[in-house]
Design a protein around this nucleic acid. Structure first.
Lengths: 332, 332
DNA sequence: AGGACGGTCTGGAACGTTCCAGGAGGAGGC
DNA sequence: GCCTCCTCCTGGAACGTTCCAGACCGTCCT
């Protein structure tokens, strides 16, 4: 690759007939250069195709303006979060550095990579690391955890009010006239406990305690289908499900068993993943407020880095009910 | 964050009582230091918790040993590819830098980010950029395109033999006894043209030219469902579908129309995505050989960077038929 | 008229590394 | 004994930035 040497500050400076310090100023959009010179410098830079070398810049300034993001590449909801994070970071002057967790690359490796790149702070999406590991990490670098509720000294958490979410789901089907409402839970997955709790207390609030029925479920379509088959023995009129993937499995099992949704049973998912929005699934679901969550995560971290005060350790975002086609009044 | 200044080469040098050049040697595992000194240096580094500063290192050496990867974060198959790339890169001494394409962050922005990080080469997964943009890019930096066949001067391509893939699908159902075999295509998506061609020529080879029936489809479940409804008017006994997502939509539409798979019709997908592997979908499909593809992409790029000769511009990997539960002999 | 000041601009010293030229000291060949 | 050649080590110059101190030059105030 006969790639000629990249142009540097000095090249631009010579071409524009000024010192490199001045060019540096202009490139950083600092004040201290007359409009006229500024124009000349930018012109010269443009002609040479100059692009600042971030490494040298970072080396000198001691800052990287880099936020590390650890996410699960197989996880659809993480994709939504990363999308939101990019948008949120755009306005702050910080860049995102992605590091994926894959079946063959664990979280600690992903974190190590980011630290070597001199990220100034870390955002972890639904991390699996032990509390001990996280505590140690947080002692060395600011950390924000997204989409997983945990209480650890020194770690910021931004999460959805999961209990409220399932409560909204229950309220919705109750308002349609349902009473026999089951819940397929998420086992030990992040958020599952809260969602279960929200279901239980909403049922009590509506005086439906006798109808409480919690079926073990999980993260995936497969366990959803299994759980649905368990419901078939004594079909409730509505069911709230841990997440959309699981709900898809539920829908599939019902279809195969010739149970029609929403005629025979109403189904509510959770996440508002792209899955739920598909026309042929068209799932009523609880949307996590991704834009708000990601914006909060970024502004929180930036505030910490710049030394601005940050209120509290935890930020809990209310979710929103999205009504689509899988809920309807019960058959009379 | 009262993070004390990181220790530097000089700190280690002082502690070990040697020059910083010597420490540098030892850290890079070069020869030129006696075993005894080497030990002392490593010990000192360890005590101080020294970690080399990659920025400074790269600045000086002019190399980053960084391979940029541009991928679509919403794209399940890209997730598989990224997983493979990480594994393939592990042994080479190069690191991966990820840059995602999201609905709000286009390919050119993703590429710009990577170039600013001084990646030495780029891997693009199913890029959408124009041929002109890619040509210009390839003139500045080595580029390998994965999972999209295109012929552009100076760009390496690693892709699946897509025509062979659909041919395998057709061969499979023909061997089961099918003759009326339709194809739901992928429109203008990457690989769609080849897959369509493979279907067509395989049908001819089996003397089934009169039965050729190509229905317009696309990437998603929704278009799959639409295409399936078109088939219902004159149901063939088997159908090969552009990809797994689309095939899932097809399956769903059939289930709703009370057409049983594989009893009434056999369905073959493409990609062997995690979707296909789900128990309740259990889709017969064509697997792209991700480990081989990603290994090739990495070794190719590394070879170019190191100046080793690379054979040809294109590397075409044969796919593999995965037989699951959606294909069976036609009803007699 | 004599400062003081604010806006422009410059030169040079960092930042933490790698690379290069070379020095000290011992071993081996003649 | 001298030259040569290793091996092990050192000092200092890069790399492309940013940061700091200060120079220059008008303007404005007193």
């Amino acid at each position: 690759m006969p790639d000629e040497r990249r142009p540097t500050l000095t090249d631009v400076a010579i071409r524009a007939g000024v010192s490199k310090s001045l060019v540096s100023l202009v490139m950083r959009d600092e004040r201290g250069a007359s409009p006229e010179t500024r124009r000349r410098v930018l012109e010269a830079a443009d002609e040479l195709g100059y692009h600042p070398d971030s490494r040298a810049r970072l080396l000198r300034s001691g800052r990287s303006r880099l936020l590390g993001v650890v996410f699960g590449i197989q996880h659809p909801f993480h994709a939504d979060l990363v999308t939101g994070l990019y948008s949120a970071a755009r306005e702050t002057g910080y860049e995102l550095a992605l590091s994926a967790v894959t079946p063959e690359r664990d979280e600690s490796e992903a974190i190590r990579g980011l630290r070597q790149d001199r990220c100034e702070a870390l955002i972890l999406l639904g991390p699996h690391s032990s509390a001990a590991a996280l505590t140690e990490l947080a002692a060395r670098i600011p950390v924000t955890v997204l989409a997983r509720g945990l209480k650890i000294e020194g770690i910021d958490v931004v999460r959805t009010a999961d209990a409220t979410g399932t409560a909204q789901a229950v309220d919705h089907v109750v308002s349609l006239g349902h009473r026999r409402i089951a819940h397929i839970d998420g086992g030990r997955s992040p958020g599952a406990a809260d969602r279960r709790r929200g279901y239980r207390s909403a049922m009590k609030r509506h005086g439906l305690e006798p109808y409480i029925w919690i079926v073990p479920g999980g993260l995936t379509e497969e366990v959803g289908a299994v759980a649905a088959r368990e419901l078939l023995n004594n079909l409730p009129t509505a069911v709230t499900v841990f997440n959309d993937r699981c709900a898809t499995g539920v829908l599939d099992a019902f279809t195969r068993a010739n149970v029609q949704v929403p005629r025979d049973i109403s189904v509510v998912g959770y996440d508002d993943s792209s899955l739920a929005r598909l026309a042929h699934i068209n799932l009523t679901t609880i949307a996590q407020d991704v834009p708000t969550m990601t914006r909060q995560a970024i502004t929180r971290l930036v505030a910490r880095l710049e030394g601005t005060a940050v209120a509290g350790r935890e930020s809990v975002i209310p979710p929103e009910l999205i009504i689509r086609g899988t809920t309807a009044p019960p058959r009379t």
